[in-house]
Design a binder for these strands. Structure first.
Length: 294
DNA sequence: AACTAGTTCAACCGCCACAAA
DNA sequence: ATTTGTGGCGGTTGAACTAGT
C-alpha cells in the first residue's frame, strides 16, 4: 500500500494504513453519517475523525462525485450534451466550471463524457480533438443533430402531453464569466421550439463552417450555439419552421453527405453509447467541400 | 463457454492557489 | 516574507463491464 509522498507527509500514520481503491458500503455509510452530523468541509479533519482510513481528498471526491444527495446518475440527457458541447467550445477543459451549469453533474462525469464520447469521434476522424476543425465538426453536425433530436422528442412529448402539459424543463445558463458578454444569459428550454444558433468566441476561427453558400435565412456569422438566444437579432427571423425544413442548410449543402439512416445506425446523438457518425469517406468529402467554400 | 478487444467511469495523481501560522 | 496545510482542479489510470468472435 502506498500513498503519494506529499499526502503521506501531512499524515501521521500511527496504527493504520490508508485504504485505496473502490469504496465499500461500510465506508460510504460512515462518510454519509459523519457528514450528516458534522457537515462538509475540513476534509482532512473529517478523514481523521470519522474513522475512515482514507485521505481527505479521497473522502471529498467520494462525497462530491458519488454520495452527495443531489448528484444525478445515469446517462446525460440530450440537453446536457448540448450544454457540454457548447460550454466546452467556450471554455475548453474547464470541467468544474462547466459542471456548475449542469445541476447534479460532476466535473468528473463531464470530463469522462468528453474523453470517452467526444474525443473518440476525433480519434476516429483522425483529427485533433482540440483543433478548430473538430470544433467545427461539433458545431456543424453534432450540435445541430442533438438539437434536432431534442426538438423531435419535445414534439412527440407535446403530443403525448397535450391535454396535461408538464412544466418545461429549463436549463438556465447564467454566464458570469469575464469572457462572456456582460448581459449574457441564456436558456435552453426543453419543450419549447429550438430556434436557431449563434456563435461563440471560437467562431472567429477561419476554419468555421460559414460559407458563401450559407442559407440566407440563417445568420452568416454564426451557425449555432445556445447562448445569447435572447440577444441574437436573427432569432426573430430564424424560426422553428425554417429549422425544421432545412436544419442543415447552414452547412452549404453538406447535409446530403450525412443521411438520417447513418445517424440512426450510428446513434451518435442517442444519449447512449456514441459511435461514429460518419464514415471516413464522407467526412473527407465534407472537409473538401468545406475548405473549397472558404 | 471462453477468449479478446474495446469502453466506461470511479478513483488516484500531481500541480497549483490560497489561507493561516 | 516564508513555510505549511488544505482543498480544488485537470489529467491519467486501471478494474469492471460489454460486445464481438
Amino acid at each position: 500500500m502506498s500513498t503519494t509522498s506529499k499526502e503521506s507527509s501531512s499524515y501521521e500514520y500511527e496504527d493504520f494504513e490508508l485504504r485505496r481503491g473502490p469504496w465499500t458500503l461500510e465506508e460510504d455509510s460512515l462518510l454519509i453519517h459523519y457528514i450528516a452530523s458534522h457537515g462538509e468541509g475540513r476534509w482532512d479533519m473529517l478523514a481523521k475523525c470519522s474513522g475512515l482510513k482514507r485521505t481527505g481528498k479521497s473522502c471529498r471526491l467520494r462525497w462530491l462525485n458519488y454520495l452527495k444527495p443531489d448528484v444525478r446518475r445515469g446517462n446525460l440527457t440530450l440537453e446536457e450534451q448540448v450544454m457540454i458541447l457548447e460550454l466546452h467550445s467556450k471554455w475548453g477543459n474547464r470541467w468544474s466550471r462547466i459542471a456548475q451549469h449542469l445541476p447534479g453533474r460532476t466535473d468528473n462525469e463531464i470530463k469522462n463524457y468528453w474523453r470517452t464520447r467526444v474525443q473518440k469521434q476525433a480519434r476516429q476522424l483522425n483529427i485533433d480533438a482540440n483543433s478548430a476543425k473538430f470544433r467545427d465538426v461539433i458545431r456543424c453536425f453534432w450540435m445541430p443533430r442533438l438539437l434536432q433530436k431534442i426538438e423531435e422528442n419535445s414534439r412527440s412529448s407535446t403530443i403525448e402531453n397535450i391535454q396535461n402539459p408538464p412544466a418545461p424543463l429549463v436549463l438556465n445558463q447564467l454566464v458570469t464569466s469575464s469572457q462572456a458578454p456582460p448581459t449574457t444569459q441564456s436558456s435552453l428550454i426543453v419543450g419549447e421550439p429550438i430556434r436557431c444558433f449563434n456563435h461563440n468566441e471560437y467562431d472567429s476561427s477561419p476554419d468555421n463552417c460559414n460559407s458563401p453558400s450559407v442559407s440566407p435565412s440563417l445568420p452568416e456569422t454564426s451557425p449555432y450555439g445556445i447562448d445569447n438566444l435572447a440577444y441574437n437579432p436573427y432569432l426573430q427571423s430564424c424560426d422553428m419552421d425554417g429549422f425544421n425544413l432545412d436544419p442543415m442548410s447552414a452547412m452549404g449543402g453538406f447535409e446530403n453527405l450525412i443521411s438520417d439512416r447513418q445517424l440512426a445506425e450510428n446513434n451518435w446523438t442517442g444519449g447512449e453509447v456514441a459511435d461514429s457518425l460518419w464514415n471516413m469517406d464522407e467526412f473527407w468529402q465534407f472537409t473538401k467541400l468545406h475548405e473549397s467554400s472558404m
